[in-house]
């Protein structure tokens, strides 16, 4: 196959050049322009002069923005960690389910992709708000407990105060985990499903319990899947905009909201561009780190 492709140069070009052109015209080139803007300054209301100034990056490194970057990194890290802890058992459960159940479970995992993120986020707000059903259930439990206490002659619980769940850091991380969980589960499932079952049986056969088998056999063998799951969760979580914007409070804004403000309300494209590329550099760093780790693992195997 490969050989015939390279030999038929014409066919090769005909198939690939539209894609390459498309990527160049609508991805690389615009990205390049924004990148150039990050070294420019506003001239009047609409024009941007690319002067090669580093002033925008200097602003990015101000404590105010650095703190927001750090906060974004922390949220993304927390989200990734939680997704891994929740996602791994889910992926295991899907792997070991019967063929029929497996198909259904996978559909369930992918179901959220069929719904608009905005709708899902508003739905989450409906769940978490003071009149949402989390609080409704909590209220019901509160009243019941109160009544029960009275019945056995104890003092009742007092007035009910609803849990303040929305517009806080908690809501942001909760929302990010909810949104990103499928991205973690799918690569984990792919890695676990490929795993030869006889490795697990051999471990059990040699006297290991299920937990030992999990940590000494399954996790090491699923490491490539874990790495790609972590990466594919971490990157979108780091650049999240909608979730922190809708679910977060005043102190839980992430870097994407700041970027949005620069481009829209502040009309400061050069600074927005610098912030965007700062985020991009961080992403590159994360990808590079993963590549280095993967190579080191491959070398260790030699």
């Amino acid at each position: 196959m490969e050989q015939s492709w390279t030999r038929a140069k014409g066919a090769f070009l005909a198939v690939f050049s539209p894609t390459v052109l498309w990527l160049f015209a609508f991805f690389l080139l615009p990205m390049g322009i924004i990148w150039a803007y990050s070294f420019g300054q506003n001239e009047g209301l609409v024009d941007i002069a690319v002067t090669g100034t580093l002033a925008n990056y200097a602003r990015v490194l101000q404590p105010l923005y650095l703190l927001i970057f750090l906060k974004s990194l922390w949220f993304a890290f927390l989200t990734t960690a939680l997704c891994l802890v929740i996602g791994f058992p889910v992926a295991m459960a899907i792997t070991f389910a019967s063929e029929k159940t497996k198909a259904w479970l996978l559909v369930l995992i992918m179901l959220p992709f069929w719904t608009n993120l905005l709708i899902r986020t508003y739905a989450l707000m409906a769940v978490l708000r003071t009149e949402g059903y989390v609080n409704w259930a909590y209220h019901w439990l509160w009243d019941e407990t109160s009544g029960l206490l009275q019945m056995i002659g104890q003092a009742p619980l007092g007035a009910f105060t609803p849990l303040d769940l929305l517009h806080k850091n908690f809501a942001v991380v909760f929302g990010l985990v909810y949104v990103n969980l499928p991205f973690m589960v799918l690569p984990l499932y792919a890695a676990l499903d490929r795993l030869d079952r006889s490795y697990l049986e051999a471990s059990l056969d040699l006297g290991a319990g299920h937990l030992t088998t999990l940590f000494r056999i399954i996790v090491p063998l699923a490491l490539p899947g874990i790495a790609s799951g972590v990466l594919i969760t971490f990157i979108p979580a780091l650049g999240s905009y909608l979730t922190p914007d809708l679910l977060g409070g005043p102190d839980s804004q992430m870097i994407a909201s700041v970027i949005e403000r620069q481009f829209k309300r502040a009309n400061d494209w050069p600074f927005g561009a610098a912030l965007s590329f700062m985020l991009m550099y961080m992403t590159f760093a994360a990808v590079a780190l993963q590549a280095i780790l993967a190579r080191r693992r491959a070398e260790a195997r030699q």
Binding site: S198, E201, S203, L204, I217, P220, L221
Partner: peptide, 20 residues
């Protein structure tokens, strides 16, 4: 008695030698 508590051991068809 689960497999890890039985006084038998097995050589698997695929050998199942742990690759890592």
């Amino acid at each position: 008695i689960p497999p890890n508590k039985r006084p038998v051991n097995m050589v698997f068809q695929s050998y199942a030698v742990f690759p890592h």
